[in-house]
Design a binder for these strands. Structure first.
Lengths: 216, 216
DNA sequence: GGTGAAATCCTACTTGTCTAGGAAAAATAC
DNA sequence: GTATTTTTCCTAGACAAGTAGGATTTCACC
């Protein structure tokens, strides 16, 4: 059962993210029809562990969704067709990260791979994107500890929605509520945390969260 | 200037919504390369008014975005390649619509056309969708009076986000805040309206707003 | 009616994906 | 070591999209 599920899941992920199965096949260093065959002919009964890892990492999902029992830590892999995807820098971000984080000086801890086409369809500019791992449970319900999120740092008029903001020294991922004029409210989706009311100049919006592993 | 803009805009809309230019060309009853040529060769200097209408209506944008001075009311049109798009029923919805609205008995006032592929990519089931025109300004800032929205009526555990809900006799489009346990707060993005706090059984969630003309 | 420009269509070519089937290689069983 | 299965690759075909260029058609104007 797991096998059939993982095949369907893979197809779903590919469709959703706009990546062709052939390019995915090449990502894992196989013939371009490899994953096609996996999905339709069931040819490899199960994906090899390293393939599973690569794909899970690519999609930002748990390895178990692609047929593995459990997940370990992982390395990126794959030689890639030119232009097919974009490596988004993945930054370390603690809730207490000091000022300057995300400004470029902060060390990237690897990359996160997205299909160029998907980014284009979302209207996202690769140059403005960063990937970040969510820490803490303050957005529990929407974002869980360990979720990977994609942040669009394109300067824009502030809208409601989930953003990465700097308030004082802290970098936070919060739901931003601008409904009250002259105020910016940082809402934690986890009701255990109280909303923080600030004036607009106390908050620096770093970027908008446009995607999380799965869907936002 | 307007012409070049409208060409770029058309391309952008098509890309964003995952419709091929060829099928759009056929939607307006032209040769499959017609809009290609319009965009790249600038062959028709301007789209004809009826084409503009059809396309604007298809994308749910103002006619002026495609090169027209101003907009009037419009009829749907077009013979369509099979499977390429889906006609979503568009329902009349007043803020004071009585119970039963959206349950199927309510009159559809036409359809709204979406590319099947786009719906698939969004993970949306055509059968569960309705299009609705927003009335009122209570969500101003996010949704404007006259915006067309797409509602996914698939039953799901309630999440935060903009939903169509029934509270008493009224059908409302509100931001739903479920952060406080035992309560459902209906938030109007327009700060002129106060949030409404209700118990879960006073609110019936009709569906989730997954798209508005433009982007959500 | 003739002319020129714009609009529209058409056809051929290229590319990428997916499908289907069989061939070659590798692994496993006996 | 041979047979059998599984994995993997390869090739060819179908199809849709996009591109480019030329062939018609349409229409205004003289």
């Amino acid at each position: 059962m797991v096998t059939a599920d993982s095949r369907a899941r893979l197809l779903e992920l590919a469709t959703l993210r706009g990546v062709s199965l052939s390019s995915l096949s090449e990502l894992i260093g196989r013939n371009s029809t490899y994953l096609q065959q996996f999905i339709r002919k069931g040819s490899p009964r199960k994906l090899e562990e390293t393939d599973r890892r690569t794909l899970a990492r690519f999609f930002g999902v748990a390895e178990s969704e692609l047929g593995a029992p459990e997940e370990k830590s992982v390395q990126a892999a794959g030689s890639v067709r030119r232009g097919d995807w974009v490596d988004v820098p993945r930054l370390a971000l603690g809730a207490s990260a000091g000022p300057g984080a995300l400004a470029g000086e902060e060390a990237a801890i690897g990359t996160f791979r997205f299909a160029s086409r998907w980014l284009r369809e979302q209207g996202l500019d690769p140059a403005q994107l960063s990937a970040i791992r969510v820490e803490g449970d303050s957005m529990e319900g929407t974002l869980r500890d360990g979720d990977e999120i994609l942040v669009d740092r394109t300067p824009r008029p502030v809208r409601d929605g989930i953003h990465v903001v700097r308030a004082g020294d802290a970098l936070l991922v919060k739901r931003l509520d601008t409904a009250q004029p002259g105020k910016v409210v940082l809402v934690s989706d986890n009701p255990a945390y109280r909303p923080i009311e600030l004036t607009p100049d106390e908050v620096q919006v770093i970027g908008r969260v446009v995607w999380k592993s799965g869907r936002l």
